[in-house]
C-alpha cells in the first residue's frame, strides 16, 4: 500500500496550508497560507515537507498507513501524544504504521502544524495547496476519515526528537505595530488610546480576522474609505469602533480605515493568542520593525535544533508540559 496519513479525528478549522496563493490578489484571490509562518517553517523544514496540516484548538488525531512516516510538529504549546506518550510541543517523529499521533490544545497557543516529510499527492489550485475555505479554493478542510496520499515519503528519524525553536516561545511582550496606513483617519489621542489599551481576543476570531475587545476607537473622518489593499496584520476599525486584526484569510482589499499594522516579527505571536487572552500594542518605526524582522527570519532560516528527548519526557511525568515550557523559556 502506498504511504498515506489517515485523519482519524479533526476539530473545526483543520486545513492544509503551504506558503500561500501568490500573484492573484489583483483578481480578488486571498493569499491564505499559515497563520504562524515561523511554526510552519519549523515543522516543514524539520520534516522536509512542502506543506503542512494546520491544526486549530479543536485538535486532531492522525495515523500512518503503508509506511513509517517522517512527521514534524511545531506551533503553540499543544499537548502532543504519540501512542499516549507525551512529546514536546515541537518534535520530529517516526510515525510507525498504526501509531496514533494526538494533538490537543495545551498550555497556550492557537495553531499547531503537522508536516509529513516528502510530498503530498495534492494538485495545487491556482499555484497553491492552501485551503481557503471561504472561496472554496484548495483542499476542503480536513475531517475524520480523510486520507492524505504521499507522492514521495521522506525517511523518518530513528526515534522521536525534540525540536528547539526559540522563536516559538510564547511571550506577553506587547505586539509591535507600525501606525497607519490610515493614521490620518484618527485623532492623535485615539491612536494613543489604541496603543495604551489592554485588548482581549474576541470569541468571533478565525483565520480571516481576530476581533479585539476593548475601548471603542472613534474615527475622525468617518469609517468608509475607498477600498485599498490590506496587509497581513492590518488593524482595521469598522463602524462600531471594535478593531479587527486581519489575518491569513483576509480579503485582499478592504474599505475600513486601518489604524496600525502588526510587524512581521510579531504577527505569529498575535496569531497564537486564543480567544479570551489579553494583549497590548507598542508602536515602532520602520527601522526597528525591519531589525526585528531580520532577527526573526535569521532565526527561522537557521532552523530548529534537533535534540534527544530529555529524561523528563517520560510517560510517568505528568509535568511534561510545564517542563517543556521551562526548556523553551530558558532559551528565550
Amino acid at each position: 500500500m502506498s504511504a498515506r496519513l489517515l485523519i482519524e479525528a479533526a476539530g473545526p478549522g483543520v486545513t492544509i496550508q503551504d506558503e500561500g496563493r501568490f500573484g492573484l490578489s489583483r483578481y480578488g484571490v486571498t493569499l491564505a497560507g499559515p497563520m504562524d509562518l515561523g511554526a510552519y517553517v519549523a515543522a516543514t523544514r524539520a520534516a522536509g515537507a512542502d506543506s503542512a496540516i494546520e491544526v486549530s484548538l479543536g485538535g486532531a488525531t492522525v495515523r500512518a498507513e503503508g509506511a513509517t512516516l517522517c512527521v514534524a510538529v511545531a506551533g503553540g504549546d499543544f499537548d502532543i501524544r504519540l501512542d499516549g506518550r507525551p512529546m514536546p510541543p515541537a518534535c520530529l517523529l517516526p510515525l510507525t504504521e498504526g501509531a496514533r499521533l494526538v494533538l490537543r490544545a495545551g498550555g497556550s497557543g492557537a495553531w499547531c502544524y503537522v508536516a509529513v516529510g516528502g510530498r503530498l499527492d495534492l494538485a495545487p489550485t491556482l499555484g497553491s495547496r492552501s485551503t481557503h475555505a471561504r472561496s472554496g479554493l484548495g483542499p476542503k478542510p480536513l475531517a475524520a476519515g480523510d486520507a492524505l496520499m504521499l507522492a514521495e515519503a521522506a525517511a523518518p528519524p530513528l526515534e522521536p526528537l525534540a525540536l528547539a525553536a526559540p522563536w516559538l516561545a510564547a511571550s506577553g511582550a506587547p505586539i509591535r505595530v507600525l501606525v497607519g496606513p490610515q493614521a490620518d483617519y484618527f485623532a492623535p489621542e485615539e491612536i494613543e488610546a489604541f496603543l495604551n489599551a489592554r485588548w482581549r481576543i474576541g470569541a468571533r476570531s478565525d483565520r480571516m480576522a481576530y476581533r479585539l475587545e476593548g475601548p471603542a476607537i472613534r474615527h475622525r473622518r468617518g469609517h468608509d474609505i475607498v477600498s485599498d489593499g490590506v496587509a497581513m496584520g492590518a488593524i482595521q476599525i469598522p463602524g462600531d469602533g471594535a478593531p479587527l486584526a486581519l489575518m491569513a484569510d483576509r480579503q485582499p482589499t478592504g474599505g475600513y480605515p486601518k489604524i496600525a499594522t502588526v510587524i512581521g516579527a510579531d504577527i505569529c505571536r498575535l496569531a497564537q493568542l486564543r480567544p479570551g487572552e489579553d494583549l497590548s500594542f507598542r508602536a515602532v518605526d520602520w527601522d526597528e520593525a525591519v531589525a526585528a524582522r531580520r532577527a526573526y527570519f535569521e532565526a527561522i532560516e537557521a532552523g530548529a535544533t534537533r535534540e534527544p528527548l530529555g529524561a523528563e519526557m517520560t510517560t510517568e511525568s505528568l509535568l511534561a508540559e510545564n517542563l517543556v515550557g521551562g526548556v523553551v523559556n530558558a532559551r528565550d
Binding site: V226, S227, P252
Partner: peptide, 21 residues
C-alpha cells in the same frame, strides 16, 4: 513580491530585507 491595483492606490508587498523602503 506582488502588486494589487485598487481604485485609487497601488498596494505592494515587498521584502524589506532585500530592498529598503
Amino acid at each position: 513580491r506582488e502588486t494589487t491595483p485598487t481604485y485609487r492606490a497601488l498596494f505592494m508587498r515587498y521584502e524589506p530585507l532585500e530592498i529598503s523602503r
